[in-house]
Amino acid sequence: MSTLFLTACSDWQSALHAHGDNARKIFDLIWTFGAVAATTWLLTVLVLAMALFRSRPPEARSPLQIDPDQERRLNCAVGSATALTVVVLIALTTGSFFAGKSIASMSGSETVTVRVTGHQWWWEIRYPKIGSLQAIVTANELHVPVGESVKVKLDSLDVIHSFWVPSLAGKRDLIPGRPSELTLIADKPGVYRGQCAEFCGYQHAHMAITVVAESREAFDAWRSRQDANAVTPSGDEERRGQAAFLGTGCALCHAIRGTPASGTVGPDLTHVAGRRSLAADALAMTPGALAAWVADPQSVKPGAKMPRIALSADDLNAVITYLGSLE
C-alpha cells in the first residue's frame, strides 16, 4: 500500500516537497510531530495487545476481587504514562512555538512586495510602481526572484479565500475587510503550484495560482515586459480579433492596456499569452484550450462568472489569434 502512495506522490503542490524557508521549517516540524505521534501510537497499541493477550492465572474470581498489588502497579504505570505525556506535550508545544516565531521573523526583510486579491474564482495580482516601472495588474501567475523574501499582501473583495502554495509556505486566509500578509522565499528556480484552500463556492476546485521563481535577472526582465502596453495587432486576423474583442462583451470585464478595454471584473489580459495557464490553471495555455474556454466557459468551469459570448466561428478564431498574440 505504501508504494502505491509513494509512487503517486508528485512534486506538484505538496507540503512534503518544501522549496522555501517557511515551508521547510514546517516540513521539519511535521516530521518531528509525525515521528513522536507514530511512536506513541505504536507503544499504545503494543501495550494494549499485551494487556489483552498476557497470560493470566486460570481461576475465575468475582469481578470485584481486585488484587491490591496489581492495582498499585497499574497506578504507577498510569501515573508514569501521564507524566510522560505531559513532558512530551510541553516539548512539542515549545518546539512549535519557536518554529512559529522563526517563521514570523522572516517578515521585515522583503525586497519585493506584491498584492494578491482573491476573486471567485481567480487571483488578481498587482505589482506596485517601482522606480521607472509603473504599477501593473496581472492574474493567476506570481513571479518572484529566487532567494529573496517576498511580501504577499492579501485581501478579498467577495468571499473568503485562502492563499496556499504548499511548497513555499503555509496558508493565509483572504478575508474581506481584513487585509493580511505572508512572507515567502523560494530557494530554487521552479514553478510551484498553489490552490485556494478555503471553500469559496462552485469553482473552488479550479482556483489555482502558479508561482514562478526565477533568477533576479529573469524576474526583472519579466517585470519590464509586463510594464509594456499590449502589442498592437500586426495582421488582419489580429485586428479583426481585437475589433471583435472590443465590440462584443469581452471588454466590459477585461482590460487590455493600450486599448480602450478597461474592465476590472475579470483578469487583465494585457500579456495573457505570456502566462502558462488560463482560467486559474483550469487549462494549459494552448490555442485549442483558449478557444475552448472562450467559446464555452461554463463547460470548462461550471458556475464561473464568465458568460458565454455569442461569436461567429470566424470572430472566435480571430479573437483567439489576437489573444494568442498578447505575450
Partner: peptide, 12 residues
C-alpha cells in the same frame, strides 16, 4: 496534537 501546532496547521 499535530494540527494544534500553528505552523503545521497552516500547511494541513
Amino acid at each position: 496534537v499535530m494540527v494544534a501546532s500553528v505552523p503545521i496547521d497552516l500547511q494541513v
